[in-house]
Design a binder for these strands. Structure first.
Lengths: 338, 338
DNA sequence: ATCCGTAAATGAATCGTTTCAAGCATAGGG
DNA sequence: CCCTATGCTTGAAACGATTCATTTACGGAT
């Protein structure tokens, strides 16, 4: 387990420099020699030591990605897109899961820094930009994912969450709902507050519509179910007739709880709309209306921006966008009347 | 961006050895010195270079995990469990996604080898054990995940898939279904063939029951939908009355397609059962019966086995199990009559 | 016969951390 | 006053791949 270029060199009767050349610039080496070296590599079962490579190079060949929740298909889709783009340039994506916890987020940032990643893609838990600012100042580019920013120092790839929130809110009022509820997560998460802001604007534009806010501790199925149970337990008159969930996971949980309750029908009594349009949204008890975001494309674009920032992109030509903003799209299914 | 221990040493007026000791064995260094060094580190913004560390150590501090599909919640749950256990010993999990493609699987294995991971957890795409054998021979322990093996050389953590298949098959016959269909993926995937085998045994034990096999190209929602459309397109008499899907993703796709078809009801006309019992199974159009596997526990246990194999576990005491086999559990919901 | 250019191969230096044998005080025991 | 034990600190060597300034070899031009 300790076969080094040195051993390969000895076995092929060449110098270590030549072995390295065979590995990295085979064209610069005489065909016969390449052959001999390859044979030695094969025979000895030599495997490059990436640590040594990185040490010499000063940088790794990977990109760090920190998401809020790996269990949310929306984020795994982003990760897939990111991986695809990274692979095009022979890079690897290191996936970190902050679980909406600033401490975990911090330790992934530390880890990535120690690994000397080429850059960090992150959906931050909080507004703790200073930490990221330091990273960037230290020479590691940062791309904010699924999060807009006014800060010119950061690249970002996002979807307009205010517009998305507005789409959802306007849709609920358009189908005649008057007592709306927004079921969200911690407002420290920007996506949550932006979507709420959008919904507020839609409500403000529709006379006689009220908006109540239910603040949950996390954007998960479990929390959604809790919210749903709380709502189902209310006397009918106090229940909302339209619910906008901050993401599909919450919506799925809400749906489970609401459907369980015998005196409640979706969408007749309560219309429900989620956010992200994950694959499963189309397959729920009552197919779920949602606001679609191009997840894989977001990941793909984020890595693309990063590589351009590094000047490494295949077709890198210097100038490039610093921020990309996609637009969300309303997807209507039966949970809001189909 | 080039602050090294050397710079820190200079700033704190100590030797590099002392800086290293402060970092790794602070107890061996005089308190005053620790203080001074820490200050220098803080001031210079020093961050350890992991590549150099690894090079010296000969090994990394990570574990490779290769799963069949990151988009399947079952596997992200496994990953979560694995991460949790790894974190307990200060290790990191590198997540690779083979997408059921032997080529991708191979390149992740290469990557992990170059990174000198401490071990590899893998749910192999094929029966290409030789490749893994070589890895193991090279000193990298391998733990097969969600896959049994007779091979004494490998540790493994699995759930009895034959028993699981039998549970599903027996359940369908028990509720009176006679024309069963098994919707699976490529039979090269062991889980698929084992579950089918279990179903076959259940069918063999029930007189007058037929079992048809639909072989899809992948275990995804999309393929499930394709299968469902094909079945819905048949004349009613030729349709199965009970379907066992090799995993929940397929089942979700099947459900979408079947429900779409107006002359078909689930479970009345066709009962459907999936496998894995992912979170979403309880929230589908018709809540999905499934065979539950303890995903997070599988991941947790796999890393635990690996660490013991390495003799690194916190409470490592030498002897340990080489294989762990969990038992699957039948979860009945409305898609098979509730 | 001499010189030049090109192609191929060489091997010492380098990256940043950890380790470890050796050095240096200082304190305590005899 | 010497000797040893103890506690801290030192600095060179090592890990393995890559780089680059040199060297070597050889065919062709003069």
């Amino acid at each position: 387990m300790a076969v080094s270029v040195r051993d390969v060199a000895a076995a092929a009767s060449v110098s270590v420099g030549t072995v390295s050349n065979v590995l990295n610039r085979p064209a610069k080496v005489a065909p016969g020699t390449v052959e001999r070296v390859m044979q030695a590599i094969e025979q000895l079962g030599f495997v490059r030591n990436d640590a040594a490579r990185q040490l010499r190079a000063g940088r790794s060949r990977s990109i760090g990605l920190i998401v809020l929740d790996v269990r949310n298909p929306f984020f795994t889709d982003i990760a897939r897109g990111a991986e695809d783009r990274a692979a095009e340039d022979g890079m690897t994506v290191l996936l970190g899961n902050s679980d909406e916890d600033p401490v975990r987020e911090g330790s992934y940032l530390d880890l990535f820094q120690e690994q000397r990643v080429n850059g960090v893609l992150i959906t931050p838990v909080t507004e703790d930009i200073p930490r990221l600012e330091r990273l960037r100042a230290g020479g590691t580019p940062v791309v904010l994912v699924d999060r807009q920013t006014d800060d010119d120092n950061f690249c970002s790839v996002a979807v307009d969450d205010v517009e998305g929130g507005h789409l959802a809110g306007a849709h609920l009022t358009a189908i005649g709902r008057r007592r709306l509820a927004f079921v969200g997560g911690p407002p420290s998460i920007r996506q949550v507050s932006d979507r709420l802001e959008g919904a507020r604007r839609a409500v403000a534009a529709a006379p006689g519509v009220a908006l109540e806010v239910l603040e949950m501790t996390a954007l998960t199925v479990l929390e959604g179910r809790r919210a749903g149970e709380a709502i189902a337990a209310r006397p009918p008159a106090e229940r909302p007739d339209g619910i906008f969930a901050a993401n599909d996971l919450l919506a799925v949980g809400l749906l489970q709880a609401l459907v369980m309750s015998s005196d409640l029908r979706v969408p007749e009594d309560i219309a429900l709309i989620g956010y992200d349009d994950i694959d499963f949204a189309a397959a729920t008890v009552v197919p779920l209306s949602s606001v679609r975001q191009p997840a894989a494309l977001i990941g793909y674009t984020a890595v693309d921006l990063l590589l351009r920032e590094l000047g490494l992109a295949k077709d890198g030509d210097g100038a490039h966008e610093r921020s990309v903003l996609f637009r969300p799209e309303l997807v209507v299914r039966e949970s809001t009347g189909g």
